[in-house]
Simulated scan of single mutants.
Amino acid sequence: MKFGKRLSILFVAAALLLFSAQGALAAKVIKMHHLNKNGAFDNPSGAAAVVFKNLVESGTNGSVQVQIFPSGQLGKDAEVVQQVKAGIIQLGVHSVGGVGSVYPMISVLDVPFAFPNHAVAYEVLDGPFGQKLGADITAKTGLKCLGFSDSGGFFQFTNSKRPIKTLEDMKGLKIRTMGLETHKKLVASLGGQPVSIAWSEVYTSLQTGVADGQMNPVPIVEFAKLYEVQKYLTISNHLFAPHVWLMNADFYGSLTDAERAVVESAAKTAIVVSRGIANAIEASDRGLPFLSEKMEVYTLPEAEKERFRAASLPVVKEYLEGAFGDEGKAMLASFLDAIKAASK
Rank of each mutant, 00 (worst) to 15 (best):
210 V>S: 02
272 V>L: 08
277 I>F: 01
254 S>E: 12
327 E>R: 09
225 K>C: 00
224 A>M: 14
330 A>L: 12
326 D>F: 14
258 A>M: 00
272 V>E: 11
200 S>D: 03
283 A>W: 01
269 T>L: 07
320 L>A: 04
290 F>D: 10
200 S>E: 01
191 G>W: 14
205 S>F: 02
312 S>T: 14
279 N>E: 10
267 A>P: 13
296 E>S: 13
188 A>L: 08
334 S>C: 01
189 S>W: 12
247 M>R: 10
305 K>D: 02
331 M>K: 13
276 G>F: 10
290 F>S: 08
303 A>H: 03
319 Y>F: 08
312 S>K: 12
315 V>T: 15
219 P>R: 07
220 I>M: 10
191 G>H: 13
264 E>T: 04
236 S>T: 06
192 G>Y: 13
322 G>V: 05
308 F>N: 01
256 T>Y: 10
313 L>Y: 06
205 S>P: 06
233 L>W: 11
320 L>C: 08
256 T>I: 06
212 D>G: 02
192 G>H: 11
280 A>I: 07
240 F>K: 00
320 L>V: 07
197 I>Y: 04
257 D>Y: 05
257 D>Q: 12
322 G>E: 03
304 E>V: 13
317 K>V: 15
263 V>K: 06
260 R>P: 03
243 H>V: 04
262 V>K: 06
330 A>W: 09
327 E>Q: 08
225 K>D: 07
197 I>L: 04
249 A>L: 08
301 P>M: 08
279 N>A: 10
320 L>F: 08
324 F>Q: 12
214 Q>K: 01
286 R>V: 07
279 N>L: 10
222 E>F: 15
320 L>T: 04
321 E>Y: 09
304 E>F: 12
251 F>Q: 05
287 G>E: 05
219 P>V: 11
311 A>W: 15
292 S>N: 10
261 A>D: 12
195 V>T: 11
253 G>W: 13
246 L>T: 09
196 S>H: 00
232 Y>T: 07
297 V>S: 07
332 L>P: 09
245 W>H: 06
202 V>T: 13
317 K>G: 09
226 L>M: 07
324 F>H: 11
267 A>I: 13
326 D>T: 15
239 L>Y: 14
302 E>W: 05
241 A>Y: 09
257 D>M: 09
284 S>G: 10
281 I>V: 08
203 Y>S: 00
329 K>Q: 14
252 Y>C: 04
200 S>Y: 01
284 S>R: 04
262 V>Y: 03
228 E>S: 00
272 V>F: 04
228 E>L: 02
